[in-house]
Nucleic acid binder design. Structure first.
Length: 828
RNA sequence: GCGGAUGUGGUGGAAUUGGUAGACACGCUAGUCUUAGGAACUAGUGCCGCAAGGCGUGAAGGUUCAAGUCCUUUCAUCCGCACCA
């Protein structure tokens, strides 16, 4: 007899990868008549560093589910693509002059190699690359659609500016007031430069996105994060008349969620950027102090402001505000704890009820008034807590004696009647700033004409192609390096034909990733961004996985999908039916993998160590539920290899003895029961993304098979079914070894398409069952009874147990409870 | 501060959703075997105890025949947002 074939991943894995490629095993027919299943993980930015175990987990999660669906007979489409515009390639280009196109292509090639070796069932005939012109042409088309509906607009916005680089900086690039690259003692502070930038009006969709959030089948905390991000709060706007410094004709609107505290107002605070500060502070006696304070505050980045715990501010001497409810005159201050970007950039300060105002009043010795009978902090913010709802108003004129909730409504109504305010809803979410003064992004398809303004590039003139440059440094005038491509820059205005210039800003990378779920459906279509009929068939995405971007990307994609749904191009308003947010895999010491620590692990290293991709995939799935953070433990990997090897051995041994069938079938019932139980468990666990218990169920089944083999040998006809079932069940996790064994078992097609074992529930039922017998809540015996035994028989069987007698100590039981199929509980 | 989770053996984690806590693995202990492999297989392994038995899901109460699961209080850890008026 020949020696048994051994399980050698490094031989079988490349073999089957080539086979799948050649046979187009994972190529989806997008026009298939079959029921469709569409799912994937957030696509990657192809960096020079390659993928690590975190990416391995990210893509393995959907791969397993998509494989299950393909095996169950669905047209299962696992797309693949690259989010390839971005900073690393551009920074590299600035340093070396190497075109980002070249480095990006190289990185993608290397990613492709890694993806294939992981055994992911992606359809490479439909790969997309967001930095290729056949993709970003349609990103530009999306921009034009939004522009046409008035959802893309320009606005002046302050940007951090480094004088040395002659370049804009993001918030994170400002460190202690200086540019991250120029933070020496002699380097200048960063300044703010006002630039005209493009925005998408996502705030128009804030309400409907918020309202739809609760019903999503998404990881719960992601939904909460999105709701917080949108930050809707309902409150009241109150109008305060100004007085002094020549501002008597001006008024300030303040937003508050606690209007019932308005009688406690003792001062008003304006944000340093508030326009009225610039206009009237110059007339104040302390104009210079105010000026200095404002300049100082505006120089701090938001991040720096956040770090400062102590509140600071200055009064605008001589400027007062009139409280609309009682005519009280209060001083006006400027302080940077009030943010220009929220509400109206001005607050009515109520130090008697608000901690922040209280702290400020203490520091600057401002008066404090309490507006409830309790004389303490009562409530602030959108909700009045139940235990405080009964507090009673005081010092509040005609509203004294009312409870807080009533007063809230009544004061708002009073203001509305007096024309001095109204109920209002505000949002934390701002419009989406999409302009980037960068080269490696999708050019904004706009032509700036002196006469016509910002004119959209006509659709038939798309794409606006990125020109190749010799030098990728910023242009130095606040515009992107594109401003240096003169041939590209100068064009005729599409409207009047006069000389004009292209917009040199490119789009935020999040724009590219806001619509790729549709492009995957028409990756090669050069007549439209996607085919709406395909979208009708395939959208929404059934399963979407990621471990990042809980707010930004996932909100932007929802915004785009809603927009195109309204235009009739997408069948549903939501892009992702089930969004699964997985937890990170940690380093062995429980810390995060990080570049600076250099503790990242390349999956290829694990694969090539001899354990193979199948063991890696299985181990990643087994280590913990995918949404639970868990450390990588290299000791655990051999256990997955061992498990696969045990299946391997069962099949190989079976093949050797196949011809020696005999009639002994004493374990068939047990064999079939174990197999069908496993089919049921694995199917439902994969669908519920509980891969760890799916694998443990298969391990249990394999353990049963070994036990039966020891007692019976391979003599029964049920073995073929059991082995084929296990091979099919393990295929989503370990596709290569499953394919090999499937062929060993005599099949000549792929196990991965249309082969999932069928559950026969009749095999799940056994003749007998084991019940626990409890006396006073403690297990005292076990009884084996017929599955169809009646309740009385079971109870008397339980009471007849010797140990039960002992614990009843001769007394009659007070009560005997039978829990069907579980236990008998006896109360003494 | 606000919001959201999560606390189970030496370790990762199971638990039919109120019904035999610790499945499946890692590790450890003992053994079998030899085609010495990254072996494989068998048995054991929550804690205390020689045993009978008792104890046991962060802690303390409660509901129940029965609580890891439900309720109240409390502690700890992690995550998100964070001067959002």
């Amino acid at each position: 007899m020949l020696p048994m074939k051994r399980y050698s991943p490094k031989d079988i894995e490349p073999k089957w990868q080539a086979y799948w490629d050649e046979n187009g095993t994972y190529v989806a027919d997008l026009d298939s008549e079959k029921e469709k299943y569409y799912g994937f993980a957030m696509f990657n930015y192809p960096s020079g560093a390659g993928i690590h175990l975190g990416h391995a987990k990210n893509f393995t999660i959907p791969d397993i589910l998509m494989r299950l669906k393909r095996q169950q007979g669905y047209e299962s489409y696992s797309p693949v693509g690259f989010d390839s515009f971005g900073l690393p390639a551009e920074n590299y280009a600035i340093k070396t002059g190497q075109s980002p196109r070249v480095t990006t292509d190289e990185a993608i090639e290397s990613y492709r190699n890694q993806y294939r070796q992981m055994g992911w069932s992606m359809d490479w005939t439909k790969v997309i690359d967001s930095s290729k012109v056949d993709y970003y042409k349609w990103t530009q088309w999306c921009f034009l659609q939004l522009h046409e509906e008035g959802l893309a607009y320009q606005k002046e916005s302050l940007q951090w500016w480094c004088e040395i680089d002659k370049s804009v900086l993001s918030d994170e690039q400002v460190i202690a007031g200086k540019c991250w690259r120029h933070d020496g003692a002699d380097d200048p502070l960063v300044t703010k430069k006002s630039l005209r930038q493009w925005f998408f009006k996502i705030t128009d969709y804030a309400d409907e996105i918020l309202e739809a959030t609760d019903d999503l089948n998404w990881t719960p905390w992601v939904k909460i994060a999105q709701k917080n991000w949108i930050g809707r709060s309902e409150g009241t706007v109150a109008t305060f008349q100004l007085e002094g410094l020549g501002a008597d004709t001006e008024h300030v609107d303040v937003f508050t969620t606690a209007i019932e505290t308005i009688f406690g107002v003792t001062f008003m605070v304006l944000a340093p950027e508030h326009p009225l500060v610039a206009t009237y502070a110059q007339h104040a006696d302390n104009a210079q102090d105010v000026d200095e304070y404002v300049l100082h505050a505006m120089r701090k980045s938001d991040i720096d402001r956040e770090k400062e715990k102590v509140k600071t501010g200055v009064p605008v001497e001589g400027l007062f505000a009139i409280n609309p409810v009682n005519g009280e005159k209060v001083p006006v201050w400027v302080a940077d704890y009030v943010l220009m970007g929220y509400g109206s950039g001005a607050i009515m300060a109520v130090p008697g009820q608000d901690e922040r105002d209280y702290e400020f009043a203490q520091k600057y010795d401002l008066p404090i008034i309490y507006t409830t009978t309790k004389n303490e902090f009562v409530s602030y913010g959108p909700e009045i807590k139940p235990d405080r709802a009964k507090f009673t108003m005081a010092n509040s004129g005609e509203f004294d004696g009312q409870n807080l909730e009533e007063a809230r409504q009544n004061i708002t109504k009073w203001l509305e009647d007096a024309g001095k305010g109204e109920a209002k809803t505000t949002y934390k979410m701002r419009d989406w700033l999409i302009s980037r003064q960068r080269y490696w992004g999708a050019p904004i398809p706009i032509i700036n004409c002196a006469d016509c303004g910002a004119v959209p590039v006509p659709e038939d003139q798309l794409p606006v192609q990125l020109p190749e440059l010799d030098d990728y440094h910023p242009s130095g005038d606040g515009r992107s390096p594109l401003a240096k491509a003169k041939d590209w820059l100068h064009v005729e205005c599409p409207r009047c034909g006069k000389p004009a210039e292209r917009e040199t800003d490119t789009m935020d990378g999040y724009v590219c990733s806001s619509w790729y779920q549709m492009r995957y459906l028409s990756p090669h279509d050069d007549t439209q961004a996607w085919d709406p009929k395909r979208a009708e068939e395939w959208m929404p995405v059934k399963f979407y996985n990621g471990g990042d971007h809980a707010t930004a990307h996932l909100l932007y994609a929802r915004f785009f999908t809603r927009f195109f749904h309204k235009k009739g191009l997408v069948p549903t308003p939501e892009p992702f039916e089930h969004m699964y947010f997985h937890a990170k895999i940690l380093a062995e010491d429980g810390t995060f993998f990080s570049k600076s620590k250099g503790n990242g692990i390349d999956p290829l290293e694990v694969i090539n160590s001899g354990y193979g991709a199948d063991a890696l995939r299985t181990y990643l799935s087994f280590i913990a539920p995918p949404d639970v953070e868990s450390p990588w433990n290299s000791d655990g990997l051999p256990s997955s290899y061992r498990f696969l090897n045990r299946i391997w051995t069962l099949v190989q041994e079976f093949m050797e003895v196949e011809s020696q069938t005999s009639s002994v079938e004493s374990h068939d019932k047990e064999l079939l029961q174990a197999t069908h139980k496993t089919i049921q468990k694995v199917t439902s666990d994969i669908e519920a993304i509980k891969y760890n218990t799916a694998i443990s169920a298969m391990m249990e089944c394999v353990n049963v098979l070994y036990k039966i083999k020891d007692e019976d040998g391979y003599q029964s006809s049920a073995w073929q079914f059991a082995l084929e079932s296990i091979v099919q069940l393990v295929a989503p996790f370990a596709p290569h070894v499953a394919e090999e064994l499937w062929h060993d078992l005599g099949h000549d097609d792929s196990v991965h398409v249309g082969h999932w074992p069928e559950l026969d529930e009749s095999h799940l039922i056994s003749d007998t069952m084991t019940l626990a017998v409890q006396v006073n809540g403690k297990v005292r015996a076990e009884i084996e009874v017929a599955a169809d035994a009646d309740e009385e028989a079971i109870k008397s069987e339980a009471l007849a147990q010797e140990n039960v007698h002992a614990h009843l100590s001769g007394k009659q039981p007070k009560k005997v409870i039978y829990v069907k199929n579980r236990l008998v509980s006896i109360v003494a």
